[in-house]
Structure formats: C-alpha cells, structure tokens
C-alpha cells in the first residue's frame, strides 16, 4: 500500500509541480505577484498605508491564486478513467485525496511563501510583519490546499465547474483569511494558532468529503 501511495505521489508531483502538465505553480504565482504589484498602483505610494494594509493584500492575493489550479486537481483524472482503475485495484479514494492534498500543497504553498518575499518588498512590509505573514501562510496554506481539493472534487464533472469552484472556495476560505490576516493586526500568536486550527479541521475532513464527492461523481 505504501509503495502504491508513493507511486501516486510521484505522479501527482510530476503533474502539479513546476513544469508539470497541470502546471499549478507558475500561473498562480505570477497572478499572486501581479495582484501585490497592482495594489500600490491603485491606492497610491503612501508607505504608511501600504505597510499597514500590505499583509492583508498578500492574504487576499494568496487566496485568489489558490483558486486558479482548481479545475485541474480532480476533473482530468475522472475524465481519463484513473479513478475507476484505482477503485478496481482497491485503492480508497480517501488515500488518493490525502496524496493529492499533499502534492497540491507542495506545488503552491512553499512557492507562495517564497513569492511573498517579493510581494512584501513591493508593499514595503517590515521584518516583523513579513515574519507574521510567512508563519500565517505556513499555517494557512495546508488548509487552503485541502479546501481546494474538496471543492475540486465537488465540482468535477459539472458544467461550468471551474467558475463554480471559485465561488465555493471564497466563502469557505473566509475563516482562514480572518485569522491569517488578523494575526497581522494583533501581531500575535493567537491568530496564527487559530489559522492552524482551521487548517487542521480542513485537512481532517478533506479525505472523507472529497472521497465521497469523487465516488458520487463516478456513478
């Protein structure tokens, strides 16, 4: 079983990581940096205002960037018949989802944290705020990855699934956004802890919710 899951992870990473065919990484990153770059143009170059709002902008940009790869997370494998073949081999959908959440997070969490360095420079964040943003993203992006896979599974096979996925993710990601961006205002650990808690809840339900959605989509 472990060997099979390792093979699945290898395939998922090959598809999702930089240069992979479902290239989840490059486009969302460029989008993320572009949003961070647009913001100073829109509100003006006042350094005090930018430093105060910059952390929140990074969080909103990260959330929007996480929506971009959703339509390629589950749908293509359903379409190509991979889920049927895995089911025939007795590999539970729940395990497949665990592997996919991990691969999806690796493909967008750490790259987003790296890109946040650039975004923080564009928005003029100081060192303390940058550290809080990075820790917040570390706590929050696993939850975003889990949420992404759940929503991708729920909308797979639906007409206009991609647009619907975006609409579904936004309200469900609000707790992550409130606690993650909120940790900047309070500068504190409580916000980070709550972000991590929301992430853990999402990670815990993702295998079951997405697994059930995939089985339903197959029927």
């Amino acid at each position: 079983m472990i060997g099979r899951l390792a093979s699945l992870l290898r395939r998922d990473l090959g598809l999702l990581l930089l240069g992979g065919r479902r290239g989840g990484t490059v486009l969302p990153l460029l989008f993320f940096v572009a949003v961070a770059m647009l913001f100073p143009f829109a509100v003006g170059p006042d350094p005090v205002l930018l430093a105060r709002t910059g952390g929140g902008v990074i969080w909103v940009a990260a959330l929007l960037a996480a929506i971009l790869p959703l339509d390629r997370l589950v749908e293509p494998d359903l379409e190509l018949g991979f889920f049927d073949q895995w089911a025939l081999r007795g590999i539970a959908e729940e395990w497949i989802v665990v592997v996919r959440v991990l691969a999806h997070w690796l493909s967008f969490g750490p790259p987003l944290m790296l890109a946040s360095l650039l975004a923080a420079a564009l928005l003029g964040l100081d060192g303390q705020a940058l550290l809080t943003v990075e820790l917040g993203l570390l706590a929050g992006t696993p939850g975003l990855a889990a949420l992404g896979v759940i929503v991708a599974a729920l909308t797979a096979g639906l007409r206009g699934g991609a647009a619907l996925a975006g609409l579904l993710v936004i309200p469900l990601a609000v707790p992550l956004l409130i606690f993650g961006a909120g940790s900047l205002a309070t500068g504190g650990e409580s916000g980070l802890a709550l972000t991590g808690a929301v992430s853990l809840v999402l990670l815990a339900i993702a295998p079951f919710a997405a697994g059930a959605a995939i089985r339903a989509a197959r029927g």
């Binding site: 598809l15 065919r21 190509l80 018949g81 991979f82 049927d84 073949q85």
Partner: peptide, 10 residues
C-alpha cells in the same frame, strides 16, 4: 480488470 473507452493513461 476493466477496459472501457477511457485508457487511463496520462
């Protein structure tokens, strides 16, 4: 084992 119209190959 099942063969249908979808080959399940990348």
């Amino acid at each position: 084992g099942l063969i249908d119209e979808r080959p399940a190959l990348d």
